[in-house]
Amino acid sequence: MAVVKYVNLYFKLVSAGIRAQMQYRFAFIMRIIGLVTAYTGTAVTMWVMLYQFQMLGSWNFYEMLFLYAIAILSWGFCVVLFLHFRSLDTYILNGTFDRFLVRPINPFFHFMSMKFDVASFGQFIFSIFIFIWVSFELHIGWTIGKVLFLLASIVGGILIQGGMLVLISAIAFWTTKSQQFYWVVMYPARNLTNYPLVIYPKIVQWIAAFIVPFGFVNYFPAAVILEKDAPFFPANIGYFSPLVGLVFFLLSYYVWMLGLSRYKSAGS
């Protein structure tokens, strides 16, 4: 029952958010165009890079595009669902966070559904186009099993990246400042994983697998679908992606709730 109520509520809040953003139609379209060009820019950079060299650590251009598109697609969903957490510290600092505490719903849920960034259509357009293109180029034989696995690992990717956003935002409960950590942890980690992990030193690969588990967002699942080796890691480690996502997200949620219980309003 509670779940149904929350799902209903989520869509109500979100549709209010969408209507608010659609008031600025020009800005909305410009942002989508901007996102698509920015992602295309990275893809073009990859192409130029491989123009002379052909291979990056046994990955060719199309395989790299595939890897990149998985990251972008799950990031798109993650932006829709969890990006609002990035601004948690501003709320806490200004004392406006308190309003999430005085309403009869879960504060985590309430905060999460406050803002819905529709510009993430840019991510969807870009990544779906790439999936189709690359499937032709690489002759990926899509079976139902493979499609299901791709969807499951995208869910895993959303949970990992969303969990990271939640975890970073939770720092603000203790320090009232967390934006910086986004730029030191999340942003570089996302950029690093745009390229196959195999090119990095072993210690970095190990961190990306077991500490900041971004390797499970795209590298391990892509290796499974494209039937490529992920050296230094057990074969088919990619199948654990959804599980890793779930565990990591629950852990982040727990830390966030722990922070919330310690929260003292900045007051005014």
Partner: peptide, 13 residues
């Protein structure tokens, strides 16, 4: 928004 992304991409590449 949009022009800015094109610009930064051109600059970096």
């Amino acid at each position: 928004g949009g022009i800015e992304d094109v610009f930064y991409f051109a600059m970096s590449l």
